[in-house]
């Protein structure tokens, strides 16, 4: 297996794992799947680092492991491990429809990436496709899920997508930058978890259709 192929294979696995995160009904399961997805992402970072022989990316992989594979899933897991899927609102889309949507997203992303002329990206078109797909899959998750916890996972997926693109295209960036982005994600997840818990306390539901007090 050549280097680029390895990276591209890992990237493909990323999309599949992302899809599972979207499909999982129980928040605790989604958190574990997300941890797995992040682990694959870290693997991709290491592969890219090895391939280009760029030292900073190893650091990226290390920090990403801490933040994405451990911290973020842990926060979500411990906050919502007792929440059962039966207590959550059903999604707007059936699982089959979600898979179909993911397929459409990947196709559209492929078409979009074909136009891009970045030298670094030349060998890694599939990775670019994956990064874009993850962003839009995350966005779709936020829009179609009634469950606000799922919206948090949607955000996490989007974030991983951006991060993949950044690692691929901008691994020359100083580590501090990467740490900044990574910790930003943690704080965002903390804030979202905080508000989701508070909303559960006041509204007694995770259903975003209950959040209609402020409609015009």
């Amino acid at each position: 297996m050549t280097g680029p192929t390895l990276v591209n294979t890992l990237a493909t696995l990323l999309v599949v794992a992302a899809l599972f995160v979207v499909l999982a009904r129980k928040p605790a399961h989604a958190a574990l799947l997300y941890s797995l997805q992040s682990l694959i992402l870290v693997g991709a970072f290491v592969a890219i680092a090895y391939l280009f022989d760029v030292a900073p990316l190893y650091h990226w992989a290390a920090t990403s492991f801490v933040t994405k594979t451990v911290l973020v899933p842990a926060i979500l897991y411990f906050a919502f491990r007792r929440t059962e899927a039966s207590g959550l609102p059903p999604p707007l889309l059936t699982p089959a429809a979600t898979v179909a949507l993911a397929a459409v997203v990947v196709v559209v992303a492929t078409i979009a990436v074909r136009k891009v002329q970045l030298p670094l990206a030349a060998d890694f078109k599939p990775v670019m496709v994956v990064s874009l797909s993850m962003i839009f899959l995350g966005l779709a998750c936020i829009i179609t899920e009634r469950d606000i916890l799922k919206q948090i996972f949607g955000y996490c997926l989007m974030e991983n997508g951006s991060h993949l693109a950044l690692a691929l295209l901008g691994h020359d960036a100083p580590e501090l930058v990467e740490i900044g982005i990574g910790s930003d994600a943690i704080f965002a997840v903390i804030a979202l978890t905080f508000f989701a818990t508070k909303i559960q306390g006041v509204v007694k539901s995770f259903d975003d259709r209950a959040l209609m007090t402020l409609k015009d």
Partner: peptide, 24 residues
């Protein structure tokens, strides 16, 4: 809730634009 979700997602697009410029 709406504020954080919409803005983090929105600003996520900003990150993508930033990364494109930076990598270029």
């Amino acid at each position: 809730w709406k504020y954080v979700i919409i803005c983090t997602v929105g600003v996520g697009f900003g990150l993508y634009g930033t990364v494109l410029v930076f990598s270029n």
